[in-house]
Amino acid sequence: MTPSPARRRHLASSPFQPNPDPVIEQFECGDLVSHDSYGMGRVVDAEAAAVTVDFGARRVRITSPFAKMSKLS
């Protein structure tokens, strides 16, 4: 795994707006999700910082910020 780059400090005198904090999506049990590596699955357990998803062949615990996972409607 490649570590994420460090966030740059915003200077008060900068004419540019600071980068907004990323919004971390919230998942609940029963949500249908799509993951870039594992495919489609269903959330079977939701915690504060992780979710467990059943992808059919296996169950995977995925930690926050869920960069590769999105909720399907």
Rank of each mutant, 00 (worst) to 15 (best):
M1L: 05
T2Q: 06
T2A: 10
T2N: 10
P3A: 05
P3C: 07
P5T: 03
P5N: 07
A6V: 06
A6S: 10
A6D: 09
R7D: 02
R9V: 14
R9N: 11
R9F: 04
H10E: 11
H10S: 10
L11K: 15
L11C: 08
L11H: 12
A12F: 07
S13Y: 14
S14T: 13
S14H: 14
P15W: 02
P15C: 13
P15A: 10
P15T: 09
F16H: 12
Q17V: 11
P18A: 13
P18G: 12
P20Q: 12
P20W: 09
D21H: 14
P22C: 04
V23F: 15
V23W: 09
I24T: 13
I24F: 01
I24H: 01
E25G: 00
E25W: 01
E25V: 03
Q26W: 04
Q26V: 07
F27H: 06
F27G: 02
E28K: 13
E28D: 12
E28G: 14
C29H: 04
C29W: 01
C29F: 01
C29S: 02
G30W: 09
G30S: 04
D31A: 07
D31E: 07
D31L: 13
L32H: 13
V33N: 05
V33P: 03
H35A: 03
H35T: 04
D36P: 00
D36F: 05
D36K: 07
S37G: 02
S37T: 14
S37D: 13
S37W: 11
G39A: 01
G39P: 09
M40P: 03
M40R: 08
M40N: 09
G41S: 11
R42N: 01
V43P: 02
V43E: 00
V44F: 00
V44N: 00
D45T: 12
D45Y: 08
A48D: 10
A48T: 09
A49Q: 14
A49M: 08
A49K: 13
A49D: 15
A50E: 09
A50G: 08
V51K: 08
V51M: 08
V53I: 12
V53C: 01
D54F: 00
D54V: 02
F55P: 12
G56N: 04
G56Y: 05
G56V: 10
A57H: 07
A57N: 09
R58H: 13
R58P: 00
R58V: 11
V60G: 05
V60F: 05
R61Q: 14
R61S: 09
R61L: 11
I62Y: 02
I62F: 05
T63Q: 06
T63Y: 03
T63L: 00
T63H: 00
S64R: 08
S64L: 01
S64W: 00
F66M: 09
A67I: 02
K68H: 13
K68V: 05
K68P: 00
K68F: 06
M69V: 06
M69P: 01
S70H: 08
S70N: 02
K71D: 00
L72N: 08
S73H: 12
S73G: 11
S73D: 13
